[in-house]
Amino acid sequence: MNKLFNTKNIIKLLAILFITITVVSCQRDGSAEEDDLPQEELTNIVLLVTEEGTTSTLTYDYSIGAGGIPTIPLKDGKSYTVVAKFRNGNEDATQEIIDAKNEHFLIFDFPKSNITVTRLDGNDLRNDGKRVGLRTKWDVVKAVDSPSPLLKLTLIHAPESVNDTKSGTAWGSVVGGETDAEATYNLTN
């Protein structure tokens, strides 16, 4: 019995427990392979915004963790096609999201604006018939409906279920899942 509880065995047991806890806590669902787009790999969320009727596309780059919030000018009564791109440094990570489209979903929250979001046809159709939201149309009723309007864009990983209709001020909602990336953009007229 003394051999079982000696100092060496206790230290070995504690070391094994520490390593086990560390490995498990650093993985989302028990396996690093399950997460096709680790949160730590996304550095930028880029929105490509094109006003309908024009050919000019403006780029708004949100750098994750770097501070600074891009401002997107929107005109009341106008419509815009918006394409979301995700980057890891200089590499485009958007294709990884498309490849794992059943594991991702975008939520567009406009808490101080009146904007309708329609998810457009593309290669991001999930098995449940919903679109991830990588390409959308924004119909702007009122870009500045309250002081300091903004867009909070959230990429959700592994939601149990998704809904692409409006929920409060957000277009899209989920049950379960975790945030893969989040960006904030100021809005102005």
Results as ranks from 00 to 15, higher is better:
residue 49 V to N: 09
residue 117 V to W: 07
residue 89 G to W: 06
residue 140 V to Y: 01
residue 151 L to G: 03
residue 63 S to K: 15
residue 124 D to Q: 04
residue 49 V to H: 07
residue 77 G to T: 14
residue 54 T to W: 06
residue 61 D to A: 12
residue 137 K to A: 12
residue 110 F to L: 04
residue 162 V to Y: 03
residue 75 K to Y: 07
residue 156 I to D: 05
residue 74 L to F: 09
residue 92 D to I: 04
residue 47 L to N: 11
residue 62 Y to A: 15
residue 135 R to F: 02
residue 124 D to S: 06
residue 46 V to P: 04
residue 144 V to C: 02
residue 123 N to E: 11
residue 114 N to W: 13
residue 60 Y to H: 13
residue 164 D to H: 07
residue 89 G to L: 03
residue 110 F to T: 02
residue 131 R to V: 00
residue 161 S to D: 07
residue 58 L to H: 10
residue 62 Y to K: 12
residue 147 P to F: 02
residue 149 P to K: 01
residue 113 S to G: 07
residue 126 R to H: 02
residue 162 V to H: 01
residue 149 P to S: 02
residue 52 E to A: 08
residue 64 I to V: 15
residue 43 T to Q: 03
residue 74 L to I: 07
residue 140 V to T: 03
residue 103 E to Y: 15
residue 51 E to G: 01
residue 130 K to A: 10
residue 87 R to W: 07
residue 143 A to I: 05
residue 100 A to M: 00
residue 139 D to V: 13
residue 48 L to V: 05
residue 77 G to K: 07
residue 120 L to Q: 11
residue 94 T to V: 09
residue 65 G to F: 12
residue 130 K to C: 01
residue 71 T to V: 07
residue 145 D to T: 04
residue 148 S to C: 06
residue 103 E to A: 14
residue 67 G to D: 15
residue 120 L to E: 12
residue 160 E to A: 15
residue 101 K to Y: 01
residue 53 G to H: 07
residue 157 H to S: 14
residue 125 L to C: 04
residue 162 V to E: 04
residue 80 Y to P: 05
residue 88 N to E: 14
residue 131 R to I: 00
residue 164 D to T: 09
residue 57 T to Q: 13
residue 92 D to M: 06
residue 51 E to K: 10
residue 64 I to F: 09
residue 133 G to E: 04
residue 106 L to I: 10
